[in-house]
Nucleic acid binder design. Structure first.
Lengths: 203, 203
DNA sequence: GTCTATATCCAGATAGAC
DNA sequence: GTCTATCTGGATATAGAC
């Protein structure tokens, strides 16, 4: 019965997805240790045991989420890096796109918050720490690089490019956290104040 | 023996302080549910049971920390509100003072982070939620008010005062989180980019 | 006031039926 | 593949000695 093997594989993937999506929201709201397997099971309408059929432990779910979060983040960074845009346009584009994604894609939003939170936590699996250590710098480097180039061209304000990159990601984290907390009901802040950090007036 | 009663009272206060300080750091790094009473006991060099002599539960410690955190925050807000400064000077002053405190006072810094984290969490005691609900808006209102007045005087950029206040506190949270994570080893970002959100060049 | 020992409970993870 | 029942460990909180 080759047909059913294929179908099973599909179910398997769908189940894993459901667990990951449900756990993501719970981890963001309650943290790793604050989330019980029972919570994940309830949220995904599965039994306790079934969750363990797809993941060998709660931590494994967490690690997988962190892995995917960085995978997407790094991918987006690379796309941004290689885009054919002037640096100052690129920065504005990055802000706008990230804000748009955060507002329209709850899942992507939660991934941002997960990374932000995980980076400040001590009691997460070693594997997750390794992933964070290995990937954390990349987004900062990309933004720092773009800003530096813009500064050489005088289209981005002078000042420490690293600091500007820090505030860039801090803004993104803040928007994501805000959106994750208040959801659609929240009025999303306008981004003009952020532009002013990077660009002269009239840009 | 009235002398020893007095002395005991002093010990009691000192012990409570030690527990609160130790727990604060642990809660920030590991979250409420990620922090075990044993961790608190170890960090404060007390026995497990002694901690329970001063606080009836882990959650009570947490609630007390949230209470103190807001108490200080609100106090600082009121002081700022009633200061005799032009609005735009006041905003710059607030940014500078908050940044300075965060950099030089690890404890104050952790209080900022605790509030920021707690506000996004679901699995905290009801009492803590109430405290957050009751106090959360105040700091935003204060900053929004100052900005509005500055905008009327044309010394602060136009735009949604609420949004500017949002970015204000997001910046503070980001600086505090950064400082709490990397401590003294971290290079603290320069604040010029932040000023640009609020003030025209040449201010 | 402080400690050790322990009761109790709950969450993570497994086993085995269906 | 899915469920229920259960084992096991560890964490909260308490009791009682000093």
């Amino acid at each position: 019965m080759p047909r059913s093997i294929e179908a099973n594989e599909k179910i398997k993937q769908e189940r894993r997805e459901r667990i990951l999506t449900g756990a993501l929201e719970l981890f963001v709201r309650n943290g790793l240790s604050g989330t019980k397997i029972t919570d994940v099971a309830q949220k995904t309408k599965m039994s306790n045991g079934l969750v363990y059929h797809y993941f060998s432990s709660k931590e494994e779910i967490f690690i997988e989420l962190i892995r995917v979060a960085f995978e997407r983040m790094i991918e987006a960074c690379k796309a941004l890096e290689s885009a054919k845009l002037d640096p100052h346009v690129k920065i504005k584009y990055a802000i706008d796109e990230l804000a748009k994604t955060i507002r329209s894609n709850p899942n992507a939003c939660l991934y941002h918050v997960l990374i932000a939170q995980a980076a400040t936590c001590d009691n997460i699996p070693d594997k997750a720490k390794e992933l964070i250590a290995a990937n954390r710098a990349k987004p900062y480097e990309v933004i720092t690089g773009i800003i530096s180039r813009g500064q050489k061209l005088k289209t981005i304000r002078e000042g420490s490019a690293k600091d500007l990159a820090f505030f860039f990601w801090n803004t993104v984290n803040g928007l994501a956290t805000h959106q994750a907390m208040y959801g659609k009901s929240a009025q999303s802040p306008h981004l003009e104040p952020i532009y002013h950090m990077y660009f002269q007036d009239g840009e």
